[in-house]
């Protein structure tokens, strides 16, 4: 799905309100051009939700946008998920959060073994599953 110029401007305005830039933290706005392009590329199955949100928020102010996104309906949920999905895979965002900007595969991650001694008291418990006869 590709957006009209009007919808594209509305999307940029809405995204920038939902996730504004924070230069001190090194976080771009969700209205950043690269992130907006990713959002638009990712609309896919959410075309109806995006259309519903953008149609209702053309020219809206910050309070109206935040009120609309606080509504517990499907369009707000799907639109929000779309914005967050694109934002939190942006290289700059991940770097600012201390995360590697890469796919999980093939490098993977390290998971600590943790503290297996915590299981010792559980091992001392008597069997307690219920017998069937």
């Amino acid at each position: 799905m590709s957006l009209s110029e009007t919808d594209r401007r509305t999307l940029a305005a809405v995204a920038a309100i939902l996730i504004p830039a924070d230069s001190a933290l090194g976080m771009p706005s969700a209205g950043d051009p690269a992130i907006l392009a990713d959002i638009e590329r990712s609309i896919g199955r959410d075309g109806a939700a995006v259309a519903e949100i953008l149609t209702g928020l053309g020219g809206a102010n910050e309070a109206t946008i935040l009120d609309r996104m606080a509504e517990p309906d499907t369009a707000a949920r799907l639109f929000g998920r779309l914005v967050l999905g694109a934002y939190y895979r942006d290289d700059r965002v991940l770097a600012a959060l201390g995360h590697e900007a890469r796919a999980p595969f093939p490098k993977g991650y390290v998971l600590d073994q943790g503290d297996w001694s915590l299981l010792d008291p559980v091992k001392q418990r008597p069997i307690f599953w219920r017998k069937d006869a």
């Binding site: 998971l111 600590d112 073994q113 943790g114 503290d115 297996w116 915590l118 299981l119």
Partner: peptide, 10 residues
């Protein structure tokens, strides 16, 4: 592995 999360739960 339990990891940090499993250890916290444990």
């Amino acid at each position: 592995p339990l990891g940090k999360t499993g250890s916290l739960y444990g």
